[in-house]
Design a protein around this nucleic acid. Structure first.
Lengths: 404, 404
DNA sequence: TATTTATTGTCAAGTCATTTAACATTATCT
DNA sequence: AGATAATGTTAAATGACTTGACAATAAATA
């Protein structure tokens, strides 16, 4: 193909080979040798040697398998001791906090339930609490953490570092999340959408390795997708790409929180699954779940749990949600032709009860040429995917920002 | 944003700034000055001067005369006399041939009706005929043409230069289109999908100027979309991205040629429009069109013509097609969040009769945050869009391929 | 076990895109 | 007409990368 060079490249890339080498070393499992780098980049071995010596001197990378000074095929890896990063995944009802080294290994993690609609002040206070909790557990002072990535469930204005008219984050609109955290902790902070971080996390350390085009469909309380296209996070022209949850599935469906009719999210999201279950039980359908026996409100976790225990009603409800998900994913597949669709988020723990009807819907509703080479699977990183993506962004930031 | 550097860049780009400068000069209307280039690329004025001197010496660019501004701003443009390019757009039922200079100005054009299902040999013979026809009209020998771009209505294997299991091109599968033409004419040939060339053409010289993310929806006999994302043509993992025509619109719809049920193309494509019109007339609906009076089979052009003449039945049929198109475009908009959706292809000459119901469907079915900043309009280049895209690819090829 | 071979990595000198820093040219304002 | 600001040019310096010769090792061969 003849590439098109954009009239307005967002950033002028200085040492593009050095940047590429750093990321190849970061993301290729098992490490890369100098000659592999030289072949991939189209520069000579000598050129690679110069760059690698620079990175070795800076402590960014190290040689694997003991230390042959000179040998045949020396694999390189990121030096984990280069620094520590915090990855924070804020969902509608939880905060997950991860402390990881620069190679992406998680050192300590913690989770906490919140409600995002309480607004930024209490939620960011909870984030602060979690950060200190995780650091205490790991016995690491804040001063040793050099970067931080954070994901939230809304469309992001990436330059401003804030959310832009989010459907489900009342009170957060135009709150300066990134700058606030940056000022509070004195380290660089990146702010991203949680689904796009899920895609990035799976691409870096999960099911999406080696895929240039992937979709991460996060099915939790709501439904959103993160897209990685041509090897880059794709955000669209105003940062709200991937809104698969608001594709219309049923013209006669219920009204969605977004104001439209029959959106996928209002039919197959976690909230919808729980509501449907409650409604069906009240209508007298048989189930092992007893609404009166529950101490808390029935949630989609209860439905999934019941399905695993053989409850037919729960299985049917999840099956229907899966088929509807597949209906929307079929549109995505016809339009994007991704190599893999990764299903994450809380509802994805249902596994094939959800995925098999989904795969069927995709087969029924997309071109065979597009759907037959396609893999549809659950997240490898599970609930950690967005948090790991946040770590990746955080580490990218410091590794790429100031290169000599 | 922190960009992610792909582990496997398809081509190692040598003089990236030189490449970028060439394309900025090609595609920014009114020309660009050296200082604008220097600011956009983040290199010094001196660096730009060196590159431009090189391009001036090579005859690739030239200085424009009419200059205005606060100081001696010299605008640069592509040297049209650098060479000639052929752009060829093969559709289901036509071949359009364009002879253009390197600045994209069309010197001569020609159109011919064919049937693509006759297979490659007769169709490529017709292409040859058209090429000589156009060259004769322009009084230019073939030897002065230095490059050629061609578009066909099917998924492309870009490395192989052939179509890959196309739904509507029987007999063409794995025929070496690019290599055949390259051998026949002795000039470099690029092969692309027609819809992606439409997107590229509109981006370069039409409605999509300055847009980083756009969709070109080609509504002709069938329906396909070309996508330009993050400023690059997006093809998906197997080259069949943009198959909007095979999104399911109606679960109770007719069977499509692709084997599935209720595809957009089978409900709103040109063939479907003509068939619906015939069916309704036979059912006794009133229309100014008289099936018996037509010397040829009724086509969608007749329907559009009737609609412009006030025929209510024709208007209603086009209106329905527009709303259905909008249903699919709404999914596209929710997923991609493009800045503009450009509607091209033969049916788009219906204009707002088609587009207004489309816009309504998009409003009804996508998030306001995504659809309100969105422009939906017809192609500026009209039926020339894919051919102009072919010219762009052809010229790109020679300008970028061998740089000192 | 010793020797050969292919592969991988390194070194020093050279090349070339780009920067630095001083200078030249032009349009507009006063 | 002269001042000013913006834009473009030049020559020397910088530094990323290449060239071409050499060194070090694993595996193959003798």
């Amino acid at each position: 193909m003849i590439p098109i060079y954009l009239p307005n490249p967002s950033i002028s890339i200085k040492n593009i080979n050095k940047h590429t080498i750093i990321d190849m070393i970061r993301f290729i499992p098992g490490g890369v040798s100098r000659i592999e780098l030289s072949q991939a980049l189209g520069i000579t071995r000598a050129g690679v040697t110069t760059i690698i010596n620079d990175l070795l001197a800076g402590g960014v990378v190290r040689e694997m398998n003991g230390s042959h000074g000179r040998s045949r095929r020396v694999a390189l890896e990121i030096n984990p001791q280069m620094g520590l990063a915090l990855g924070i995944d804020i969902g509608a009802t939880h905060i997950s906090t991860y402390l990881a080294d620069f190679s992406g290994r998680v050192i300590q993690e913690s989770e906490m339930r919140i409600h995002i609609d309480q607004g930024p002040l209490p939620v960011l206070a909870a984030v602060d609490e979690q950060i200190h909790h995780v650091l205490d557990l790991a016995g690491v002072p804040l001063s040793r953490v050099s970067t931080m990535g954070i994901g939230v469930p809304g469309p992001i204005n990436i330059d401003a570092g804030m959310v832009d008219t989010p459907p489900i984050m009342p009170g957060w609109n135009r709150y300066p999340i990134r700058d606030e955290l940056q000022a509070r902790y004195g380290i660089p902070v990146t702010l991203n959408n949680d689904a796009e971080l899920g895609a990035l996390g799976e691409w870096a350390y999960g099911a999406g390795r080696r895929h240039d085009n992937l979709a991460f469909v996060k099915v939790g309380s709501g439904i959103g997708a993160g897209l990685l296209l041509n090897g880059q996070i794709y955000r669209g022209s105003t940062g709200s790409a991937g809104e698969i949850g608001h594709i219309t599935i049923d013209d006669n469906g219920p009204r969605c929180t977004c104001g439209n009719i029959g959106c996928l999210e209002s039919l197959a999201g976690g909230i919808a699954i729980a509501q449907t279950m409650k409604k069906e039980i009240r209508r007298g359908q048989k189930s092992i779940l007893d609404l009166n026996a529950l101490t808390e409100d029935l949630s989609y976790e209860h439905v999934i749990d019941a399905a695993f225990k053989g409850d037919l009603l729960a299985q049917n409800i999840i099956n229907d949600a899966g088929y509807r998900l597949g209906t929307a994913v079929a549109s995505l597949v016809n339009l994007f032709n991704p190599g893999i669709v990764i299903v994450g988020g809380g509802v994805s723990v249902a596994g094939d009860i959800l995925l098999e009807p989904m795969r069927k819907a995709v087969r029924d509703r997309s071109l065979a040429a597009t759907s037959s080479p396609l893999t549809i699977m659950t997240s490898v990183l599970g609930k950690r995917a967005p948090g790991m993506g946040a770590v990746v962004q955080a580490v990218s930031q410091v590794l790429h920002r100031q290169l000599a």
